[in-house]
């Protein structure tokens, strides 16, 4: 509206307008579990100030958010919780995997850590780093804005449905070897293994 009362109309498709609005008002749902969560806090606070890009309204209720920030190691025990939160968020929603751990398990290739959240949910932007520097985080948000705008196509890589996620979270797909096979492959140390090794060494 101008001062004299006349209205101005921006010729713009409604779709474009929606994109524009969405990209500049991303409400993040922070899911910071560990070290990366601390860096996320730095990014949100005054020095780096994520609010410059319209993403400062941190909401802890998934139903009010549209950008899920997964920052930190996700263990297999935590995976169902994370998936529930993802399912509770309303469309349209975007997911940022922040840090090596949430992208791929990072340095924790162990019995209790999920090897990347993309096993249980689709991810739009992966941010490398352990932890990523706040600038990297900001870059990821800007990148996501371009995706929302449509300048960069949204990665269709794999979109695990709820069923896929459940499969990934259960025993079926994950355990590739039985206990006996593991022992046979020499991946573990058992009393028998130790004694045979010992006798081998003594025989030498």
């Amino acid at each position: 509206m101008s001062k004299d009362g006349s209205a101005m109309i921006f010729p713009m498709l409604l779709e474009e307008a929606a994109k524009w609005a969405r990209k500049n008002s991303l409400w993040p749902m922070p899911f910071g579990t560990s070290c990366c969560g601390i860096e996320m806090m730095s990014t949100l606070s005054s020095h780096y100030d994520l609010s410059r890009f319209g993403a400062e309204v941190v909401r802890f209720s998934p139903r009010q958010c549209d950008m899920l920030l997964v920052a930190g190691t996700i263990t297999t025990k935590m995976a169902p919780v994370l998936r529930t939160i993802y399912d509770q968020m309303l469309e349209p929603k975007w997911v940022l995997a922040i840090g090596a751990c949430s992208s791929s398990g990072g340095i924790f290739d162990t019995y209790s850590v999920l090897q990347g959240i993309d096993e249980i949910m689709p991810v739009d932007v992966y941010v490398p780093g352990c932890p990523p520097i706040p600038e990297g985080f900001l870059y990821a948000v800007l990148h996501l804005q371009k995706i929302i705008e449509g300048k960069i196509p949204r990665a269709l890589s794999n979109k695990p449905t709820h069923e896929d996620a459940v499969n990934a979270m259960t025993y079926k797909n994950c355990v590739s070897r039985t206990r006996d096979q593991v022992i046979k492959a020499g991946l573990t140390i058992t009393p028998e293994y130790v004694s045979t090794e010992k006798s081998k060494q003594e025989g030498r």
Binding site: K77, P80, V81, D109, L114, A168, T170, C174, V175, T188
Partner: peptide, 26 residues
């Protein structure tokens, strides 16, 4: 630390480092 449904004891030497046991609910 582990889920109640977990089988085995992870810090024993005969438990392999990468043997994951995920569960579908909390």
């Amino acid at each position: 630390m582990m889920d109640d449904r977990f089988v085995g004891h992870p810090l024993r030497k005969d438990y392999s480092l990468r043997q994951r046991q995920p569960f579908s609910n909390n």
